[in-house]
Write a protein that binds this DNA or RNA. Sequence first.
DNA 1: GGTTAAAACTAACGAACATTAGTTAATGTT
DNA 2: AACATTAACTAATGTTCGTTAGTTTTAACC
Lengths: 194, 194
Amino acid sequence: MKVTEGLQSRKQQILEEAAKLFRNYGFKGTSLQQIAKKVGMEGPSLYNHISSKNEILSHLLMTNARIFHERITEIQTSSLGAIDKLDRVISLHIELTVANPDAMALMLHEWAHLEPAEKQEYVSLRDCYEREFQSILEQNIAEGKVVQMDVHFMMFMILSTLRSLYAWCAKYRDYNRLELEQNIKQGVLKGILA
Amino acid sequence: MKVTEGLQSRKQQILEEAAKLFRNYGFKGTSLQQIAKKVGMEGPSLYNHISSKNEILSHLLMTNARIFHERITEIQTSSLGAIDKLDRVISLHIELTVANPDAMALMLHEWAHLEPAEKQEYVSLRDCYEREFQSILEQNIAEGKVVQMDVHFMMFMILSTLRSLYAWCAKYRDYNRLELEQNIKQGVLKGILA
DNA sequence: GGTTAAAACTAACGAACATTAGTTAATGTT
DNA sequence: AACATTAACTAATGTTCGTTAGTTTTAACC
C-alpha cells in the first residue's frame, strides 16, 4: 500500500490532463496515448487507473452536471428574493468556471459522446437546470425586478454569456474573482434591470 | 455534360449534410460513410465530388470566416457613425447565422482540426475580426455612446451572445428575422447604451 | 529481506476509418 | 452508332486507436 498519494492522486491528474486535451481537440480527437504522454506513462497503463476512455469523459461531465443541478435547486428552493436568486446563480457559474474551466468547456458539446444511458441522464439534468433558471427569471419578471421580455430570450442571452465564460476567464487572471463577478453581474444585469 | 444540375449541386448537398453531422458529432466523430449515407451513396463515392474529408471542413469554415472578415472591414471602413457600425455588425451575425446555423456552429471549436496552413489562416482571420470589432467598440466608448467598461469585457459579452445564436435560433423560427434582430439588439445594447 | 500488491511496460488483437484503385452503369455529345 | 464523361459501386490497403493479456518493476509492510 502506498502511504503518500502525492498532492493529487494519479487518477485526478489523468482527469485534469484529459480535460485539457478534450477541450483542445475534442473527445474523439484525443487519443489515450496523448493523455498518457501528458501524465508520463504509456497508453495502456492508463487502464490501471480507469476502466475506459468513456469513463473519463463521463466523470468530467456528470460530476459538474450534478453539482449544477444540486446547487440551483438549493438556490431555487431557498427563501431568497428573486433578484438574489439570480445573483447567486450567476455566482455559481463563475465559481465553477474559474475552478475548472477545462471541464466547463466540455459541457456545451462533448456530452454527445456519452454512452446512451448517461447521455440521457446528462440531458435530463441540463433540462432540469434550465427549467429552474427559467423559473427564477419568471419570478423576477413577475416581481417587476426586470424588464418585460420573452423569458426564453432573456435566458438565452444570460446563459450564452455564462456558458462562454470558460473561454475568456483565462484572460482575466489579473482580475480577482470578486472583480470578475461584479463586472459580469453589472454587464448582464444592467441590460435587464428595470 | 449534364443539362439540369438539380436545384442544388451534389457537392452543395454533401456540404450541408456534413455540416449537420459535424455539428452533432464533431468533425472527428463523423465518418465519411455517415455523410455518404445522408446523401444517398456509398462512402468512397464521395471522392467523386470532394478531394478529402478535410476539404469539407475547410470549405465550411473558411468560406464563412472570409465573409465575416470582408463584411466587418467593409463596415469598419465605411463612413457610418460608431453606433450604426455596431448595429450593422450585429445584423451581420444574425444574417449569417440564420442563413447557415450548422456551419456557424462549427466555427467555435472545429477549426482545431484544419490542416496547419489553413488553421493559421483561420485564426488570423478571426483575430483580425476581433480587432475590428474591438475598434468599433472603442469608437463607441470614445463618442460616449456606450457605458464606461473594459473593452475586452464588453466584447466578450456581446460576442458570447452572437456566437451562441446558432444554438437557439431554431427555436425562434416563428419570429421573423426583423423581430429577432430587434430583440437581440435591444437585449445586447440596452445593457450598454449610456 | 522477503512478501505482496499496485502500477508500470511490451506486445498484440480487432474494429473503424480515410483513402486508393479498378470497374460498371448512366448520360450526353459527335 | 460510337465515344467520352460523370458518378456511382466494390474491393482492398494502410493507419489509428481502444482495449486486453501477460510480464516486469516499484515500493510499502511485516
